[in-house]
Design a binder for these strands. Structure first.
Lengths: 209, 209
DNA sequence: AATTTAATCAAACAATTGTTTAATTATTTT
DNA sequence: AAAATAATTAAACAATTGTTTGATTAAATT
């Protein structure tokens, strides 16, 4: 999907508010006011509030899997190095699109009747298949252990990253980092997560440390 | 807080609906209808919808930390065994109170202005202090490594558990377990998480496998 | 048995919700 | 320059929101 500037402006405003207050907690008038446009423009451009959420998803979730595929397949690396690449890719994606992932987290918690659950399901499936392939590569060469539960492993990657990102205010407070500029703090948390998750994945995948 | 039977009935109905549709996505009339009571009873007993959410939190979050403290301090165990106890305690708690934890997950994602964020913050702080103590015990005896980042470690426990629980329908589908009775499936997922997380914690804490 | 307190209810309340309308202004195309 | 399309607007729409009211019934207390 391609959106014009005004549409992007609405989508991005909605994204921020949805992340902060939830989909149901945000009114179309909130969005319109924050974006500096008339309420009717939302229906005019997207049809409805629900379809605006769908538009947001196709705007963001777009070709994430393809990016990941491209990045990994076009490099000649050891299986574990590819896994590490994937870990950093995920952390970066999460960090650059924090608002969107907050919305995704919420939608995943909800019952599976919403307009987004199908999109998320599809996205997750393709992604897990890719990771499964990566792991099978490593198992063929004998570098990786057998009996790896991919969904559980991915739950660790996504769950840990998502939780720490969502509760970063708490992480700041407990470590007395309230005064640190956000840019610096994001770098810190990214590095922390990267080292931590790579360590965990190596332990699980190779049974070595 | 102690609630009478009718109050509990309302709280537990609200809990299910909040978990499924979110706080904003659930109307007081939904709750009243589902609980088989009059709408006015909610204001009558709790004052407001927001205060009903607060009541739910004090109803559930109650003495979780004390339970955990009691369970751990009153046993003579090696540090790692205490950690394992804590892991299983968390998984069990999460599994027995899935609706409540879904609500907590959502509330944590939201901006920090809600009525619950203070309660969650306080609960998390006390809990992390307890875990910190546990880890320091192990560090004194030399069983645990130095430089353990407790919040990151707890993000792995809570994040992984929460994510897998929230997306269990997906886990069922990808493993072709749609037909498995829920009781059996819950046991399976509990065991999976328990083994997985204990392995990860041991790797991080002892640098051994 | 009389009185007080608690519980329950349908109805009304004002505010807010997402969406549509019909008119007006900008922009593009002919 | 005229015509046609797109963008924008304030106002209205009906539906739903959380909450309150005032009356009625049930339970507890005296």
């Amino acid at each position: 999907m391609d959106f014009n500037d005004k549409q992007k402006q609405i989508i991005e405003t909605a994204e921020q508010l949805f992340a902060d207050r939830g989909f149901e907690g945000t009114s179309v008038r909130d969005i319109a006011e924050e974006a500096g446009i008339n309420v009717a423009m939302i229906s005019y451009y997207f049809g409805s509030k629900e379809k605006l959420l769908e538009a947001l998803f196709s705007y963001r979730a777009g070709d994430t899997v393809q990016q990941l595929e491209g990045m990994i397949h076009h490099k000649v690396l050891a299986p574990l190095e590819k896994i590490n690449l994937m870990i950093d890719f995920y952390i970066n994606k999460f960090q650059r699109q924090q608002c969107f992932f907050k919305i995704m987290m919420r939608e995943q918690v909800a019952s599976q009747h919403g307009v987004t659950s199908g999109l998320i399901q599809h996205f997750k499936k393709r992604n897990q298949q890719l990771v499964k392939q990566l792991i099978q590569e490593g198992q063929k060469t004998g570098e990786f252990s057998k009996n790896i539960d991919v969904p559980v492993l991915m739950a660790t990657l996504i769950g840990t990253t998502g939780h720490l990102m969502a509760t970063q205010h708490f992480y700041r407070e407990i470590n007395h980092l309230q005064e640190m500029p956000d840019e610096q703090f994001q770098k810190l948390i990214k590095k922390k997560l990267s080292v931590h998750l790579k360590f965990l994945f190596k332990a699980i995948l190779t049974h070595e440390i």
